[in-house]
């Protein structure tokens, strides 16, 4: 749990995309370990394999092809981002403490940590300019939702979880292809470039 919190803070505070990819993969592996406690070997294996090895590989490849190393000039600066991250941690603990009581789960920490991970993901998507970092934000968001589900829902059918995993995998795959096309079309993957479509005639 503490590792999850720290990895979120690293995600918001780091400018190097490689670091972000490694930490989001670490989150995936940690979350993959959770179902082990529930004896879902297949699910645990699949999610560790996909989130721990396939996603980093896809993202690193996209990073090499797009030739970006770090997030330059995000909309929100890194130290401010860290502050917001800490604030988000506080807010999620507060929300978690006010929610109605739940059936006993793996750890009392799971609810605030899951909320914090979701907020981190959303924050990364809106505050970063590189398409690749936005994908990382999306993955963090999914990790948060996953943590919530694994922590609270004991009898979720394995087949559904596998389907969800498959969807996320294809989503990242398609996003990777799109990033490749964006980098070829614009010579970079800064989403600032993607502002041609709007309602007022230019």
């Amino acid at each position: 749990m503490v590792c999850l919190v720290l990895s979120n803070l690293m995600l918001v505070g780091s400018s190097r995309i490689a670091v972000c990819i490694r930490f989001v993969a670490l989150q995936g592996v940690l979350l993959g370990l959770l179902p082990l406690a529930l004896h879902h070997w297949l699910l645990a294996g699949a999610s560790i394999a996909i989130k721990g090895t396939v996603f980093p590989w896809l993202l690193f490849r996209a990073m090499r092809e797009a030739n970006v190393r770090r997030e330059v000039e995000p909309y929100v600066g890194f130290s401010t981002s860290l502050m917001i991250g800490v604030a988000a941690l506080g807010i999620s603990s507060w929300i978690a403490s006010r929610l109605p009581p739940l059936a006993p789960s793996i750890s009392p920490m799971i609810l605030p940590v899951a909320l914090f991970t979701m907020i981190t993901g959303l924050f990364l998507i809106v505050s970063r300019r590189q398409a690749l970092t936005q994908v990382i934000g999306y993955l963090a968001l999914e990790n948060g939702v996953f943590a919530f589900g694994l922590g609270l829902v004991r009898e979720a059918p394995v087949i559904v979880e596998m389907g969800i995993l498959l969807d996320i995998f294809v989503a990242v795959f398609v996003m990777g292809i799109t990033i490749f096309h964006i980098s070829r079309e614009f010579d970079q993957i800064d989403t600032e470039q993607l502002t041609a479509l709007k309602d007022t005639p230019s």
């Binding site: 799109t178 096309h181 964006i182 079309e185 614009f186 993607l194 479509l197």
Partner: peptide
């Protein structure tokens, strides 16, 4: 395959 449809696709996906 041009930049405007690419922008639309990215927004749609994300």
């Amino acid at each position: 395959r041009h930049h405007r449809s690419l922008e639309a696709t990215w927004k749609y996906l994300l």
